[in-house]
Simulated scan of single mutants.
Amino acid sequence: MTSGRVFLCSFGFDEKFVLRCLVRYGFSVGDIVKLITSDPPDSRVLDAYRRVEELARRLGGSSELLAVDYRDLDRAISVIIGIVGGLRGNEVIVNLSGGMRILICLILIALMLAETKSKIKIEIETEDLKSLVDIPQKILKLPKFRMGGAKLKIAEILVSRGELSVTELATAIGKDKSLMSRHIRDMEEVGLIHTERMGRTKIVKPTNILRALIES
């Protein structure tokens, strides 16, 4: 396992998104860029990889080209899960701007399913290079989140009433404040709610994602 940062990028025959990502974050000694491409990689992909490899080496880091067969979805996802799972302890920057769309989907699925404690930053740069969209890491935890019982009641009340204090929520569903605080922390960690302080009172508000889940 590398001691530096890991850059995990979807990759095709155009290296510009990867190069821009490496420069943007100051790729340096000890860092490694892992490029995920389709198997088998054609000559254009290999040419593009050589240019990435050259820059990575010049900056004191390293690179690796990893080819997965997207036609075998089960194996492709399991391979990428293995890659992500092996990154424990590293800061990971994921760039999903290049390569085939199916590869981007596979990497996102693997990130959602993989068990990792790494700090992960996920970004997608638009084709015109004018915008960079960040995907919050907490969104990755959402598919595994179980929203039943008290959490479901909290969700329904918040969507119905807009915002409440922790004390008001505890009263509304008949739970003590300490238990309510744990539920709120769990829901905030996956991006279903957000909280803010108003003096000594903590206010809880639903996110648009929670509204969509409850109202759908």
Rank of each mutant, 00 (worst) to 15 (best):
S63N: 06
K151Y: 02
L103P: 08
L140N: 03
E64N: 12
F145R: 12
L113Q: 15
E91Y: 05
M198Q: 13
D47I: 06
E115I: 06
K16R: 13
R161K: 15
I93P: 03
I122G: 03
D128N: 13
P40S: 14
M112P: 09
E163M: 06
R71D: 10
L73F: 07
R20A: 05
F11K: 09
T167Q: 09
L65P: 09
S43E: 14
L169T: 04
L106A: 11
T116A: 10
A150R: 01
C9A: 14
V133E: 10
L59T: 01
G149N: 03
G4H: 00
R200I: 11
S78A: 03
R88C: 04
L103I: 15
L210G: 05
A170D: 08
A114C: 07
R75Y: 02
I32N: 09
E189P: 00
L129W: 14
D72R: 13
A110C: 14
I214D: 07
I36P: 09
S28H: 08
G12R: 03
S181A: 07
G98C: 06
V94G: 00
V79M: 05
I32L: 06
G12P: 01
I209T: 14
L158G: 06
I80E: 03
P206I: 05
E196Q: 06
Y70E: 08
N208P: 08
V204C: 02
N90D: 00
K151H: 02
R185W: 05
D72P: 07
F27A: 07
L35W: 10
D47W: 02
F145C: 11
N208V: 15
Q137S: 15
F17K: 01
G99T: 14
